[in-house]
Amino acid sequence: MNQTSTDQTVLAEMLCLADTKWVLGHWYAKIILNGRTVPDFSSMAGMAQDELGHTRAIMNYLEQSNGLPEHQLEFGRRMDQIHNMQLLDQAPTSWADFVVTVYLAEHALWCMLESYTQGASVAVSNFCRKFAEEGYFHRIYIEGWIAALDEEEKLEAVESLKARLDLARQWFSTPDSEPLLESEVRTLSLAHCGVTFEHSVGQLTSLIGAENVVVDSSRTDTSWDSVRRRPEGSSMPARLWEYVVPTSEAAKMARRPLAVSIEDNIDLFNVKKVKDETAPFFDQ
């Protein structure tokens, strides 16, 4: 496999992580008002800040290493070019649904990040290790929320798990080949990540008492886009996209001037690299 092809696969895979964290950060930002105490507000804001900070770091790295203009990945893509996990497309319907969904998303991200931490790319392995460390506190906080659910909420959590688990499992669908495993950018296969994720699901089911749950697989799409880790041709729902990147006139007026626009229509996977000698070098 040549270097360009590996770079494009790294770009696609890292965008799967970055975009999922991007949406997850907005989920946390949305529920900050659900806090009841100052530590609650601080924690939810901290988790949102962590996720959005990770997103920013990954996007920054990808823009530099692929010769893309600054902010291209944040403001220069259409909603059908976003690689976020389909699990987070639908807004939570209750507190229990929220807790179960973020548990699945956080653990899926952690399993995926872990596969890069011993990889050959110093930059990728370093930031993945850091993100996984910070995510530990998110996971433990969510486990605390689950432990605090009452009996009625646990029943809601079981229903939520039935509806959402298959969407999370689908994220670990194994393609015919794994170029990043072959090039040692990741050292654990997707199948291994899937097994680790199932272990986390087992912990969740025992916490909410859903050992014999029958998962709804009707929403699982058979045509799978392994580049975006989403169903073929799918895109982020319009209302979620509007929440993540507001396009209303007021939002545009309040936005800092940017050097890029969605109208530039830059092909992310076919960009001529121009090395910027003044840019910070992540591998050092």
């Binding site: 530590p39 609650d40 601080s42 924690s43 506190f137 433990i140 906080y141 605390g144 432990a147």
Partner: peptide, 19 residues
């Protein structure tokens, strides 16, 4: 100090409040 319903929530509160 932090106040929380269980140990897991307390750990996370401590991490995010005293950062």
């Amino acid at each position: 100090t932090v106040q929380a319903e269980n140990k897991e929530l307390a750990i996370a509160h401590a991490r995010f409040v005293y950062s």
